[in-house]
Amino acid sequence: MPPDLWQLYSLMFKCRRFEEAVAKLWHDGLISGEMHLGTGEEAIVAGVVSLLQEGDALALDHRGTAALLVRGVDPVLLVRELLGYPEGLCGGRGGHMHLFSQPHLAVSSGIVGASGPAATGFGLAAQYQNPGAVAVAFFGEGAMNQGMLLESLNLAAVWQLPVIFVCKNDGWAITSTDGSMTAGDLNERARGLGVPVIEIDGRDVSDVWQAAQTALERARSGQGPTFLHARCVHFEAHFLGFQLLRMVRHPLREMPRVAVPLTHAILKKDGEPFRIRLAGLRKVLAAVWRTVRDPRRGLAHDPLWRTRRLLRADLSRLQAMENDLTREVDHIIASALVGVPS
């Protein structure tokens, strides 16, 4: 059975509008600390989460707001949580990195890699008391260097637990590109721990949906875990206000602040010989350069744009749907902001 692209597109579109609205709240100062958006990974979120059923569990990382939206958590409660309102999903006590919904068996954590053991435990509970149910872990490729996640892959494999390990690989672990920090091959890692791998294009929602379907069937029928390796791009990089992106987007404003102390440092009298200093400078410039020329931030890598192309034949339906969803998200934000006693 092929996926319903209209349904998946509507989920992705809603996630995008929702997170754009969250970004605005953050820029307006209504959210105080960090904010990690998932814009760019909507195909992975929609493709996997739309297939979950009652009794299935979801273990999220620090970037889990959109997944909860797709899972059916009340969006007004989500926004109110991000705003720190007592009427929020977690009484304003959790925030976007610590979102919990017991009815959805959904947890999140700001500790990199923690979704691995979390999903494994949900998988154990499912295997023991609710056969047929599954647990899904979402994490980035940076988390694949965290021991607890690799240990979870092994445990899920030896216990044949119904866990889908979804690696959302955008190629960046905060400020590092994966080649510089991750040795070997992630698929080989998972296979080496006894977990079968499906590699997919995380920008292609059909691809994700098909792979998730396969993995879920395996898990539901007691055949154990799967490692879904999905490549994607994060348009806002690690978090909103990410220093490297700011330098690229507003060079005149941001560069002097970075360049002046850097120049002082390179000219200081004590230290290593100039040749070694230059090697250091090259490393700094390379990080900026990689951010500037990251080709994946282009439209062609946007999962929404790619799906929309396929639906354009019926443009009036498409636009009507987008308008409805935009209004719906506007209404969610408005309801979250009003209706709350200050």
Partner: peptide, 15 residues
């Protein structure tokens, strides 16, 4: 992320 966070040390003392 030390190469970025401590970039001033990086350019003075090398990678």
């Amino acid at each position: 992320d030390i190469p970025l966070l401590r970039r001033e040390l990086l350019v003075r003392f090398g990678p």
